[in-house]
Amino acid sequence: MAKDLFYLFSLNNILIMILIFVILFVLIISSTPLFEKGFSKVVYVLTSSIWDPVYDRYGIFFAIGGSLVVALIAIIIALILSISTAVFIVEISPSKIRAPLEMMVDLGVAVPSVVYGLWGLFILTPFLRDHVMKPLIDSIPVLKNFLGSYSPSGTSIFTAGVLLGIMIYPFATSIIREAIKLIPFDIKEALYSLGLTKWEVIKNEIFYIRNSILAGLLLAFGRAVGETVAVAMVVGNIVNPEFYKIFTPGYTIASLLANQFLNATGIMIPILYFAALILFSIGFIVNIIVALYLHRSFHR
C-alpha cells in the first residue's frame, strides 16, 4: 500500500512521546550536579532531615516522610468515605436522589485543588484545631508525645491529610461506583438467592470488585502524593524531622518545591530537581502497576 499523508498524523504520537521523554530528561539532567557529588551524597540527601542554606546542607527525608504520612492519612479517610459513598449511591439510596448524588460527587472531582486549599485554610484548619486537635490534646495530654503539639494557626500534617482525603474521595468514589455498577446482575441474583442479608451481599460485592478498589486506591494515592497547592496551603511548610507527629506543621515534597524552588541557589537547585524526580517516580511506579497489572485483571 502506498504511503499516504495519513502517516504524518503519527508525528503527533511521536511528539507526545518526546514530551514524556523530555520531562524525564530535564529532571535527570538538572539533578546531575547532585549525582556528580557521589553516591554517599545522594544517600545523605535521601536520609537526613536538614535544610540549612547557611552551611548549604540539605536532606529531604522530612519531605519524603511528610508526603507519605499526608498521603496515608488521606488514603485512609478516602477509602472509608469512598467505599461507603459508592455503596450508598448504587445499592442503598432511593433511586430518585441517585442522579443528584452522583452529580455532586462528580462535581467534587472537578473542583480545583486551589479552591479546596482556600476552604481548607479558612474553614477546615480552624475547625480541626478547635474541635479535634485541641480537645484531644487537652483531655489526654500524654498524646502530645505521639501527635505533637498543634500550632496556633492549626496548620499541620494532619490537617493536610484530612483535606487531601476530602479532596480525593470523590475521585475514588467514582471509580468504585462504576465498578459496582459493572457487577453483572446475575452475580447479584446469585448472592441474594443464597439467602444472604443485604450487608452480606454488599460485603461479597466489595470482595468481587477488590481489584478495582485497589486500582482506585493506588491512583488516589498517586494523586495525593503529587498534590501541591491545596497541601501547601494547610501543611504549615516547616522543616520538621518529626513528621510522624501529625499535629505538628511540616512539609511534603510538592509543597517544598512550591515554596523553595524559586529561592534556590547552588546545590539546592539540583537537590530540588532530585526531589521532583522522586515525586515523579512514585507516581510513575503507581501508574505502571495500575496500567499493566490491574487494568487487565478488571476484565476477567
Binding site: 446475575d186 446469585a190 441474594y192 438467592s193 443464597l194 439467602g195
Partner: peptide, 30 residues
C-alpha cells in the same frame, strides 16, 4: 426475604457461579 431465599434455592438460566471464588467457596458460601 433472606429467610425465604434460604429455604427456596434457585438455579438461573445462565450459569452464574461467583467467578472470583473457588469451587469449594462457591458451595460453602450459603
Amino acid at each position: 426475604p433472606e429467610n425465604v431465599r434460604r429455604l427456596i434455592g434457585m438455579v438461573f438460566q445462565i450459569p452464574n457461579p461467583l467467578p472470583h471464588l473457588s469451587i469449594y467457596d462457591n458451595v460453602a458460601l450459603g
